[in-house]
Simulated assay, not measured.
Amino acid sequence: MIPHVGPSVLKPGRHGPRGLFLALDDQVFAFAAERHWPAAEPVLPRLSRGANHGLLWFATAAALAVSGTPRGRRAAVRGLASLGLASLTINTVGKPSVRRSRPALDAVPLGRRLKRQPITTSFPSGHSASAAAFAAGVALESPTWGAVVAPVAFSVAMSRVYTGVHFPSDVLAGAALGVGAAFAVRRALRPRRRSHRDTEDD
């Protein structure tokens, strides 16, 4: 096994909380990279690529929109609005402010790596933010549809560590930002009072 050397490996001496956190982050990344996940190999890299530019979520929103229920259509709109806000925040504030380097790929098996490596900075994870934003936005409108979308969103977020393009903290921060975006959209678009028909549609 090739030893992992990441940007967060500690040098001898005393270290502050930030250094210890980054070292732990790197160790968790290395642990995940060195584990064998047979069930994930045929799925997670494809999911990771499918979520590029939000394509997976646009397709999911289209499926919700044609579901035949008003709540499905509203869930699609809220999911996409949440995704848009999260993406805007990531690209204008998040990544330019932190500029964290991507993980070293030494310990990541070749079969897991993406054919096209991202060229943007690592923190926070845009894919995770979009996934969490869309899933949370959908769930805040329709818990039923949210329960369907959530496992896919979780898998997309995990795929970013699995394929070696993000540290775990990048994913957690992105997911937190995405959920925050969904709640911000909820405040901006107050849900109307549910009718008996809406309850039946769920």
Rank of each mutant, 00 (worst) to 15 (best):
I2G: 12
H4M: 14
H4N: 14
H4V: 15
H4G: 15
V5C: 10
G6H: 11
G6A: 14
P7W: 15
V9K: 12
R14D: 12
P17I: 13
F21E: 13
F21D: 12
L22A: 12
A23P: 07
A23W: 14
L24F: 15
L24R: 15
D26W: 06
D26Q: 15
Q27N: 14
Q27D: 15
V28D: 11
F29R: 04
W37V: 08
W37C: 08
P38G: 07
A39F: 11
A40V: 06
V43M: 13
R46L: 12
R46P: 04
L47T: 04
L47Q: 08
N52T: 13
N52M: 07
L55C: 06
W57D: 01
F58S: 06
A59K: 04
A61H: 04
A62H: 08
A63Y: 04
S67W: 01
P70W: 02
R71V: 01
A76W: 00
V77N: 01
V77Q: 04
R78W: 02
L80I: 07
A81T: 03
A81C: 06
S82M: 01
L85S: 00
L85T: 00
A86F: 00
S87K: 06
T89Q: 04
T89S: 08
N91F: 05
T92F: 03
V93A: 14
G94W: 01
K95W: 03
P96A: 06
S97Y: 03
P103N: 13
V108L: 10
V108M: 11
P109S: 09
G111W: 07
R112H: 09
R113T: 12
L114S: 08
R116Y: 14
Q117W: 13
P118L: 06
I119N: 13
T120Y: 06
T120K: 12
S122T: 09
F123Q: 03
P124K: 00
S130K: 02
F134W: 03
A135C: 07
G137T: 01
G137S: 03
G137R: 01
S142E: 01
P143H: 04
T144N: 03
W145E: 11
A147C: 09
V149S: 07
M158Q: 08
S159K: 05
R160A: 09
V161M: 10
Y162W: 09
V165W: 01
F167C: 07
F167A: 07
S169V: 14
V171D: 05
V171H: 06
A175L: 04
A176C: 10
A176K: 05
G178K: 00
A181F: 02
A184K: 04
A184S: 13
V185P: 02
V185T: 05
R190A: 13
P191M: 08
P191A: 06
R192H: 09
R194Q: 10
S195C: 09
S195W: 02
T199M: 08
T199F: 02
E200P: 00
E200T: 11
E200L: 13
E200M: 09
D201V: 03
D202E: 14
D202Q: 10
D202M: 10
D202T: 05
